[in-house]
Design a protein around this nucleic acid. Structure first.
Length: 633
RNA sequence: GCUGAAGUAGCUCAGCGGUAGAGCAGCGGUUUCGUAAACCGCAGGUCGUGGGUUCAAAUCCCACCUUCAGCUCCA
């Protein structure tokens, strides 16, 4: 009898050749119920895979990322099944699980409408109710080709023709699809789903190929999970920074400048606070701020290599007889600052920060609100150091990243990208650098993912992702080592202790990434209700009737003296009306003043979203909010 | 750039061949009010831009611009 080792190291004996699900049943009924697939010695397989020898087993449920993937992948089959039932002429492309659900690419003449999606959804429920099991079958290549040719599925035939490995198909009821698997045991496991929309997608992602219709969906084993997910999508729509940006008067877009925002006064306050904050941090960490030209001759880009590889993203213009470009990156120009005099090993590290405005000619279809703009304000920096200084520098950068993102309550995760094929630079330096990056991460007690061979050709990097209040992930900061692009191409040197000229290492890094994108992310993360230190208006003062305007004015003056951004609302409106307005503007505090407050020198405090907080003396309120602002709470 | 959808007042939207409409916001007045919308009135649009069809176009057709959902790209 095979011995099965479970993740908690306990060992269970399984019946010889019994399906894996039987082991789950031995462990607990709920596990057997929730299990979607199983990992046998690390390989994900169907639950009915027979256990023939000693092995390690791990059952996957919807709580495991891999379990979700199986669930969504099976859901995509179910959807294809339903589409085939309703539209027998449809030809199928691929239908994988994605980060947040699944899709299937289909070739069909009719443009699918929301009503079609509803019908497909209904059909999916019918098929799920029949609860047919997913049957795996290994087939010969020629049989597979014959089958899918007969089924008139040219895309499947194309895929099979390119396959060398064992070909498997999965059948579920009367629907058979080419698939590596694994799948959930039966269609009945797939219960709650929603088709979210369609879009065009080229066959194999190549614009030379025919465009197929991609149908997106999402599914869950529990009704509540689906409901929560749909609610989250609704919430995301409400928080859309394009909508909030306009409503809160932060920024607007205009046809006259596609891909570039007009920052409104209130938005600019947020921008400036962020700038002030990051500058304070960098001063503390001994950075030197520089500013380099926005318009430079193309010679620079030829030297850096951008002219050959990045030209299509650059705005290029002719000035007199020369070709110029708006800079799409700061890095090459920072070398001019480094090179303006001879550098000693004692000078290093040199940390040059630059809040530079960059222009990148993103293709029109890629633009989207603040998230993808053509004009980018980047909190950039280039650190030039000796190889032995990599570790402490990376260490500081990780600390900075954590401090900055912790402040906004983002959950931060790190990914290390290692040496790719065709990398340039000294292999020994690569090895040491990767070691330094790993060590810096480990010293900070960080669990990090590794993207093998995903570094740039000029050095390894750490990408930093944050998770916002809705659980959405954003790639923001990046820490990128560079042995080649700046040091070699711009012939950077320093004189070492032995009198020899040596190459420094450059570290490219950004924390916010771009102010535009980051303000967009913050707006959605906070749903427009910024913490006091960022809030464009920190306190609104609301006199109950105009006979208290004078007192209210004195309150505003006191706040302004305390450097608090305060506004007086002395409009001839009822206090309920004013409160409603300032609530919708998401101002952190309202101070309501009437006879009582005037007599006692107090203010009635109302906090955004929380309501009436009672009265305190004006001076106490000033102290409290000042503290909140200073501590960036 | 590609596919699809959309662009009407500052905002949200109705109208879809017969002289442009509502609510909110704005402005003027009345009201002087205690924690999420007082009342009355006024003003505001070459219906994204340019062509075309028609006696007549916001409405039908074509092109372009912009936006959105994706695809693609992200040295």
């Amino acid at each position: 009898m095979p011995k099965v080792t479970l993740p908690n190291k306990s060992i269970i004996e399984a019946e010889a050749s019994a399906p894996a699900i039987e082991v789950a049943k031995k462990i607990s009924r709920s596990l057997a119920e929730d299990a979607l697939a199983v990992k046998i010695n690390g390989k994900i397989s169907d639950l009915n895979t027979p256990i023939t020898s000693d092995c390690e087993l791990q059952f996957l449920t919807f709580d495991d990322p891999e379990g979700k993937e199986v669930y969504w992948h099976s859901s995509s089959h179910l959807m294809a099944h339903a589409i085939q039932a309703l539209h027998p002429e449809a030809k199928f492309g691929v239908g994988p699980a994605i980060e947040d659900g699944f899709y299937y690419d289909i070739d069909i003449d009719k443009t699918l409408t929301p009503a079609d999606l509803e019908a497909i959804e209904k059909k999916m429920h019918e098929i799920s109710d029949q609860n047919a099991s997913f049957e795996r079958k290994v087939v010969k290549k020629e049989d597979a080709l014959k089958f899918f040719s007969a089924k008139k599925d040219p895309y499947k035939v194309e895929i099979i023709s390119a396959l060398d490995e064992t070909i498997t198909v999965y059948s579920e009821g009367d629907f058979t699809d080419l698939c590596r698997g694994p799948h959930v045991p039966s269609a009945g496991k797939l219960k709650y789903f929603k088709l979210l929309g369609t879009s065009g997608a080229y066959w194999r992602g190549d614009s030379k190929n025919k465009m197929l219709q991609r149908v997106y969906g999402v599914s869950f084993p529990k009704k509540k999970m689906l409901e929560e997910h749909l609610k989250m999508l609704e919430e995301a729509k409400l928080r859309d920074h394009r909508k909030l940006g306009r409503e809160l008067e932060l920024f607007v877009f205009h046809d006259i400048a596609p891909g570039a925002p007009f920052w409104l006064p209130k938005g600019m306050i947020i921008f400036r606070e962020l700038e002030k904050f990051i500058r304070e941090e960098l001063d503390r960490l001994n950075y030197d701020e520089i500013s380099t030209p926005m318009l430079v001759k193309k010679d620079l880009w030829e030297q850096s290599g951008h002219w050959g590889h990045y030209q299509e993203n650059m705005f290029i213009l002719k000035v007199e007889e020369d070709i110029y470009s708006l800079k799409p990156m700061n890095c090459p120009e920072s070398t001019y600052v480094y090179r303006h005099k001879v550098r000693s090993y004692r000078d290093l590290p040199l940390r040059y920060s630059e809040i530079g405005r960059l222009h990148r000619n993103e293709i029109s279809g890629a633009l989207g609100g603040m998230f993808r703009v053509r004009q980018i304000t980047m909190d950039d920096a280039h650190i030039y150091c000796r190889p032995d200084q990599i570790l402490p520098e990376i260490n500081d950068l990780i600390g900075l990243v954590r401090r900055v993102y912790g402040l906004f309550n983002f959950e931060v995760s790190f990914k290390l990208s290692t040496k790719p094929e065709g990398a340039m630079g000294d292999p020994k330096l690569w090895e040491e650098a990767e070691k330094s990056l790993r060590q810096a991460l480990e010293n900070n007690g960080i669990k990090y993912g590794v993207k093998e061979k995903d570094g740039a050709f000029y050095g390894p990097k750490i990408d930093i992702q944050i998770k916002d209040a809705l659980g959405r992930e954003w790639q923001v900061a990046t820490i990128q080592l560079d042995f080649v692009m700046l040091p070699e191409r711009f012939d950077l040197t320093y004189i070492d202790a032995d009198g020899q000229a040596k190459r420094p290492v450059a570290i490219h890094r950004a924390i916010f990434g771009s102010f535009e994108r980051f303000v967009g992310i913050l707006t959605e993360h906070f749903a427009g209700a910024f913490p006091a230190w960022l809030s464009p208006v920190q306190t609104a003062v609301l006199p109950i009737t105009d006979s208290f305007n004078d007192y209210a004015k004195s309150v505003v003056d006191a706040l302004k003296t305390g450097k608090i951004r305060a506004e007086l609302d002395d409009r001839n409106e009822k206090v309920g009306y004013k409160i409603r307005e300032w609530e919708t503007k998401k101002v952190p505090y309202m101070l309501i003043v009437g006879q009582k407050e005037k007599d006692s020198g107090t203010v009635s405090v109302r906090k955004h979203h929380e309501g009436d907080k009672g009265s305190v003396s004006l001076s106490e309120f000033v102290e409290r909010i000042k503290k909140e602002i200073t501590e960036k709470k």
